[in-house]
Simulated scan of single mutants.
Amino acid sequence: MFRASTILLALAAVIFGCWQLFASKSEADNKARDKPSIELMTSLPIIWGEGSSMEKILSGDASPAAIYEYWQSQYDLKAVDSLEGLTGRDTDIVMLAQPRAMDPADIALLDDWIRKGGHAIILTDPALVWHSDLPIGDSQRPLASGMLSPLLQYWGLELLAPDDERAGLVELEFDDFSITTAGVGSFAELQQASEAKAVCLMSAGGIMARCKVGRGQAILVADADFLNQELWPDASALETGGETQAMRFTDMLLAESGDVSSVSND
Rank of each mutant, 00 (worst) to 15 (best):
44 L>D: 14
45 P>T: 04
46 I>V: 14
47 I>H: 14
48 W>A: 10
48 W>Y: 06
48 W>K: 05
48 W>L: 00
49 G>P: 08
49 G>T: 02
49 G>Q: 09
50 E>M: 06
51 G>D: 15
51 G>P: 06
51 G>A: 04
51 G>T: 09
52 S>A: 15
52 S>C: 05
53 S>P: 11
53 S>L: 02
54 M>Y: 01
55 E>A: 15
56 K>S: 12
56 K>Q: 15
56 K>R: 14
56 K>I: 03
56 K>F: 08
57 I>Y: 07
58 L>M: 03
59 S>F: 02
59 S>H: 02
60 G>T: 10
60 G>S: 13
60 G>K: 13
60 G>I: 06
62 A>T: 00
62 A>V: 10
62 A>F: 11
63 S>I: 05
63 S>Y: 04
63 S>P: 01
63 S>T: 09
65 A>Q: 12
66 A>K: 05
66 A>Y: 01
67 I>R: 06
67 I>N: 11
68 Y>V: 11
70 Y>R: 15
71 W>D: 15
72 Q>P: 12
72 Q>C: 14
72 Q>N: 15
73 S>K: 13
74 Q>S: 15
75 Y>M: 02
75 Y>T: 00
76 D>S: 05
76 D>V: 03
76 D>A: 02
77 L>P: 02
77 L>M: 08
77 L>D: 15
78 K>C: 06
78 K>E: 15
78 K>I: 14
79 A>Y: 14
79 A>H: 11
79 A>K: 14
80 V>H: 15
80 V>Q: 04
81 D>L: 02
82 S>I: 07
82 S>L: 09
83 L>T: 10
83 L>Q: 08
83 L>A: 13
83 L>Y: 05
84 E>V: 07
85 G>V: 05
86 L>R: 05
86 L>Y: 10
87 T>V: 00
87 T>I: 00
90 D>L: 00
90 D>Q: 09
91 T>D: 04
91 T>Y: 02
91 T>L: 05
91 T>I: 07
94 V>P: 03
94 V>Y: 02
95 M>F: 03
95 M>S: 08
96 L>F: 08
97 A>G: 10
97 A>S: 14
98 Q>W: 12
98 Q>R: 02
98 Q>G: 04
100 R>C: 11
101 A>T: 13
102 M>G: 12
103 D>V: 04
104 P>V: 08
104 P>I: 11
105 A>G: 10
105 A>R: 10
106 D>L: 12
106 D>A: 12
107 I>C: 14
108 A>E: 08
108 A>V: 03
110 L>H: 13
111 D>Y: 05
113 W>D: 09
113 W>R: 09
114 I>G: 03
114 I>E: 01
115 R>V: 01
116 K>F: 00
116 K>I: 00
116 K>G: 04
116 K>E: 02
116 K>W: 06
116 K>Y: 03
117 G>W: 11
117 G>E: 02
117 G>C: 07
117 G>A: 03
118 G>S: 09
119 H>I: 00
120 A>S: 03
120 A>D: 01
